[in-house]
Design a protein around this nucleic acid. Structure first.
Lengths: 192, 192
DNA sequence: ACTATAAAAATGAACGTTCATTCTTTTTTT
DNA sequence: AAAAAAAGAATGAACGTTCATTTTTATAGT
């Protein structure tokens, strides 16, 4: 028990260090030695928890994606109306991107580079299923436009990543008013 | 004359090779030796045209960004109405992202990683000024919503990058109908 | 027009460094 | 006291960059 606990702590520390260092330097400019140092561990120890560097970053990606979607769908359930469900999910996502902005930034980098291998990318996509189901329902009920999932995602959810990154770079400050405006823009672009 | 011509050809070949290799492997997994090989040049020759690897990728970014915005604003002029101007610019951008998708993908990677240094990033942003001016005018005329530039960009232009990348990965096929729907979604989200 | 010469451009090999990973030893746990 | 976990040092490969040299181009005198 104590052993297992200790192991999980180390694994978490490694994942956390990976996120932070990859955010600041990129995957290939983040040496295993630095990840080890930040996690207070020997470089060799990483290989007790992960096969190699690629495996470390793949698993980190899947972990973060799972955390992200868990948070996004936490307060949603399928008995809600489509518009109510969308609002709740959208606002949870916005919340996550602002509060856990290291994690969100890491995901953005993963989604826009060849850093993650294809199987792990596919694995990450699966987690979004509840949202796809909601859209499907919305289309059936005639509440949202009959667009491809990619268009729905591109216009309703994805812009948040851009805003979060701009904010992280200090380009501007996202406050409550912006979030509400962004939500309205998202809903306007997909509702019938 | 012949000399200068030759030099520009080599520089272009290096920039082109950089785009292709960075798209497929990322910045740090793209060795100078491979860039040289793809451009049919000796590794040492790169250093006659660029200070170092960082300078090569910075200049490539600025080149591509300039090409992108030149294309985007080619058919636009300031005497157009805001809605007409927006439509023309938006459709040119969509066009560019589909036709020059290597270039567009390279920009997306640059904008989501620490690959480009801050001065070059700033330099790249300047090129978008005509669009910002158009938005400013739209807000003054009451044609578009009084949102921050980042919100306007996030919801009207940026989603195209997501679609282009999804298409590049083979996730779906963007056709004329999608483009029209995407344009409508973009306009709906920003118009008053 | 042709050659000699200087300058510029280009090259391949070499250097020093860094990195992912492994090996051997030590420490901790059972 | 055996097994598992962790550590630090070692290894070999790969990389960015530089160096010494060769090749190409431009210039100038005859």
């Amino acid at each position: 028990m104590a052993k297992l606990q200790k192991s999980i702590d180390k694994r978490n520390a490694l994942v956390k260090a990976t996120i932070e260092l990859v955010n600041n330097n990129g995957f290939h400019a983040t040496p295993m030695s630095k990840i080890a140092k930040m996690a207070n561990v020997s470089p060799a120890t990483i290989y007790l928890y992960f096969e190699n560097k690629q495996d470390l970053v793949n698993q980190t990606y899947i972990d973060v994606k799972a955390e992200y979607t868990k948070y996004a769908f936490e307060t949603y359930n399928e008995s809600m109306s489509v518009s109510e469900g969308f609002e709740i999910i959208w606002k949870r996502i916005a919340d996550f991107k602002l509060k856990e902005c290291e994690e969100a930034m890491f995901l953005a980098q993963c989604d826009n580079t060849p850093m993650i291998d294809e199987p792990s990318r596919q694995e990450g996509i699966k987690h979004l299923q509840p949202l796809l189901d909601l859209w499907e329902r919305g289309k059936k009920e005639g509440v949202i436009k009959p667009l491809s999932d990619y268009l729905l995602y591109a216009y309703s959810i994805n812009p948040l990543s851009f805003l979060m990154i701009a904010q992280k770079r200090g380009a501007f400050q996202l406050d409550k008013k912006h979030i509400e405006q962004a939500y309205q823009a998202a809903w306007n672009s997909i509702k019938v």
